[in-house]
Design a binder for these strands. Structure first.
Lengths: 370, 370
DNA sequence: TATTGACAAATGTACGTACAGAAAATATAC
DNA sequence: GTATATTTTCTGTACGTACATTTGTCAATA
C-alpha cells in the first residue's frame, strides 16, 4: 500500500529544509555566511517574507544567527546541545522497514546487544525511500548519536546522501552497514553472501535435475544484484543457458504489482520452466499464492526455492525450501562492532560475510532424468 | 527633538511584553484562549503582522500555542522551557517484543506519526519480563524522554514498577499505554476491545452451529483475561455451559511448551470439541500445525478462529478466520496522543477502545443441525 | 434525534511595499 | 596612503492585501 505522497509542503518549509540540509551536510560550514535574503529571494522566486520565515525558524532552532547589516551565519554550536546534558549513550539505527519481513529480527538482535552495554536505541525507517533516508540522517546528526547502524536504502542506485555519511566520518561517529552497502563509500559492513545464497539455491535445483530454471529478481538493491549474479554463476557452471525471458525483475516501486506480473510470467512460462529461484521468501510466498490461483501445483509442476529462512518459510503451510540468513545474529554483530569501536578497540573486522546454508522444505521436487 | 529616553521599543515588543505579563500574572490563565489576532489588531491599532510577530515569538518561547481555525491558547507548561536550547524531542517506546507478531506494525505506526512532528523514537523491549521492563523504565527516566508509549508487561499480574510510572507522572512526562493497561494505575490507554473480540469469535462459531467450543487462553496479561471473559459471555448468552476442562491456559513462561500441551489437549478433547477459540493468530497457527501432526483436518473435524488479523492469518496457506486489530493505527493514535499532550492540548481521549470486526477465512465450518 | 451543509471565525501561507538602522564597500579629500 | 564621507548592501520593523485551511456553530434535513 503506497503512502500518500507528501502533502504540498509550504514554500518556506522547503527552503528551511534545504538550508538545514546544507548546514548538516556541511555545504554551509559553521561560521560561514549564507546567501543574503535578497539572493535567496531571487533564487527561489519567492517574496522576502517567505525567505525570512525560513531563516527565522532556523534561528529559533539554533542553526542560524542573523546580524543586522551584515548577514546571516551558520551557528557554530548547533550540535553542541549534548554539552550540558548528561551524555546518554545512544546508537542510531536506520533501517528500510520496521515491521516487514526479517527486519524486526535484525532490530531485535541490535537491541539486545545494545542493552547489554546500556546503550539506547534510536530508531528510524526509510521505507526504502531516499528522501526519507535523508530525513533520518539529519535527525541522527542533529541528535548527536554516538554510533550508527544503517541498512542502506536502494543500495544499487546512486545515493545522494553520501555527504551525510561523510559528516559522520568527520565527526568520528562510528557507523556500519548491514544487509548491503554503498559501493561508493568505504565503510565496514555485515552482509549475507548473497551471491552464494542464490548460487546454492540454483545449484540445489540443478542437482535435483532441473534444467529450466527461472528467477524473480529485485533490481534496486545490492542483494538483488548479487542474487542474480549467483544464479547466473550456477547456471554457467552447469553449462545451462541463461535466458533473459526467464528473469522476472521488480523493484521497490513495482513491488505492489508483483502479483499481477507474476501471473503473466507464470502463464507465459508455464510449459517452459520446472523451477524458480525467488528473490526471497516473501516473493516465494507470493509465487505460491499465484500458483494456487493458476492451479499450478507445487512442487509437482513447479519447484520453488526462497531465500532468507524467514518466518514465512517456516510457517506457511507448505514449507519453503530456503537458505539461511543470520538475521538476529547480524544485528547483534553490527551492534557489537559499533560498541567495540566506541570502546576504542582496534583491528575490528571490516567486511563480514555470512555463509548461507540450505534448508530443505517441501517445495523442491526431484526431476527424473528420462 | 529629543530622541526617546528609553530605547524606543518596537511595537511588537510592547505587545509581546503586555501579553507575557498577562500570562505570568494570571490574567490569561493556563489553557485559556487569548483574544484573536484581529481583536488585538484593533486594540493596539497595528497591522496583523505585528500582532503575529509577538504571538509567534511567545510561541517559540513556549508561552503560547496557536491552533489553526480555533485560536491561540496559553500553554500549560511554559515554566519548564528553561533555555532557548531546543531539546531533542524524543518519545520513548517500551514494548514487550520487537520482532514478533503484530508488534512491528504497531511500532511502525508510532514511528510514522512521530516522524511527522520530528520526534525521535527511543526504543526498548521487555520480552514480557518485569525486570527488563524496570531496566527500560530506568533508561527512559535517565534519558529524559519527553513522552512515553508503553505496552504493559505481564499486565494481569501485580507490577512492581508502578513507582517508576508515578515518577513520570510527577515530572509531567505524558505517557499512554497500548494493547493493555495496569489496572492499579490511572492512565489513558489505547486498546482493542478484547472482550468483544473473543465474544464475536465465539458467537460466530455458535451461529455456525457449534456447541462444543474450547478456548486456548493466556493468563498473565489483560488481553488473555478479557478474551476469556468474552468467550464466557458468548457461551452464557447462548445458554451453553462453560466447562473448565475445555480451557487450555498458558502464559509467557509456559509458552514454549504450548505445542506439546496442545497435543495432549487436542487428543483428550478430540471427540468432544468441534471448535476452538484461540488466544490469537499465533496460537491459531500452532493449533493448525499440531492438528496436521495429529491428522485432525481443519475445518472438517475442528473449526478454529484466531484473533488480531496478523500476517499469519493472511499468509498461512489455510486462511485463518480471525478478528481485526488496529495495529498500525493504534500506534499512530498513541503517538498522536502523546504529541498533542506535549503541545498542551486539552480534552484528549482517555480510554480508547477499538472495535474488532470478523474476517472470514477458511477455518470455520458450518455444522448441520441433526 | 442524529446527520449534513452552509457559513463565519480564526489561524497559516504568501504576496507586495516601504523605510529604518547597522555594517560593509566604495569613493573622496587631504 | 590614509582618514573620512558617501553609497550600497543587508537585516529589522511595519504596513497592506489576498486566499487557503481548519474549526466551531447553527440551521435545515433525513
Amino acid at each position: 500500500m503506497m503512502k500518500e505522497v507528501d502533502f504540498m509542503k509550504p514554500k518556506y518549509q522547503i527552503i528551511l529544509d534545504d538550508l538545514k540540509s546544507y548546514i548538516l551536510s556541511g555545504t554551509y560550514k559553521a561560521g560561514e555566511k549564507i546567501p543574503s535574503e535578497f539572493a535567496l529571494q531571487e533564487e527561489y522566486n519567492v517574496s522576502r517574507q517567505t525567505i525570512r520565515k525560513a531563516i527565522l525558524d532556523l534561528s529559533n532552532e539554533g542553526f542560524l544567527r542573523s546580524e543586522k547589516g551584515s548577514g546571516t551565519y551558520v551557528s557554530t554550536q548547533y550540535r553542541s546541545r549534548t554539552s550540558g546534558k548528561t551524555m546518554n549513550r545512544t546508537i542510531g539505527v536506520i533501517t528500510t522497514y520496521i515491521s516487514d519481513y526479517i527486519f524486526p529480527s535484525i532490530i531485535r538482535g541490535i537491541e539486545s546487544r545494545l542493552n547489554e552495554d546500556n546503550y539506547s536505541l534510536l530508531l528510524a525507517s526509510t521505507n526504502n525511500d531516499i528522501s526519507q533516508e535523508k530525513k533520518a540522517l539529519e535527525m541522527m546528526l542533529s541528535y548527536g548519536v554516538d554510533g550508527l547502524i544503517i541498512e542502506p536504502t536502494r543500495s544499487n542506485v546512486y545515493n545522494p546522501n553520501i555527504a551525510y555519511y561523510l559528516s559522520f566520518k568527520e565527526q568520528d561517529v562510528p557507523f556500519t552497514m548491514i544487509n548491503a552497502y554503498y559501493e561508493e563509500l568505504e565503510v565496514p559492513f555485515f552482509c549475507l553472501d548473497d551471491v552464494q545464497s542464490s548460487y546454492l539455491a540454483t545449484r540445489e535445483l540443478i542437482s535435483k535435475g532441473h534444467t529450466h530454471i527461472g528467477i524473480i529478481a529485485k533490481m534496486d538493491d545490492l542483494q538483488g544484484k548479487f542474487r542474480l549474479k549467483g544464479f547466473i554463476k550456477a547456471l554457467g557452471e552447469a553449462k545451462l543457458r541463461f535466458q533473459q525471458e526467464h528473469v522476472l525483475s521488480f523493484d521497490t516501486a513495482t513491488k505492489s504489482n508483483l502479483s499481477a506480473n507474476l501471473e503473466i510470467y507464470l502463464n507465459d512460462n508455464r510449459d517452459d520452466l520446472t523451477a524458480l529461484v525467488c528473490y526471497n521468501d516473501e516473493v516465494g510466498l507470493e509465487v505460491v499464492n499465484v500458483c494456487r490461483i493458476l492451479g499450478i501445483s507445487i512442487p509437482d509442476e513447479l519447484s520453488i526455492i526462497g531465500q532468507d529462512n524467514s518466518y514465512i518459510a517456516k510457517n506457511a503451510n507448505i514449507k519453503l525450501t530456503t537458505l539461511t540468513h543470520p538475521q538476529e545474529q547480524m544485528g547483534r554483530d553490527a551492534a557489537d562492532w559499533v560498541i567495540k569501536n566506541l570502546q576504542g578497540k582496534k583491528d575490528l573486522p571490516t567486511n563480514t560475510y555470512y555463509q548461507p546454508v540450505l534448508i530443505e522444505g517441501e517445495t523442491v521436487k526431484v526431476i527424473e532424468v528420462e
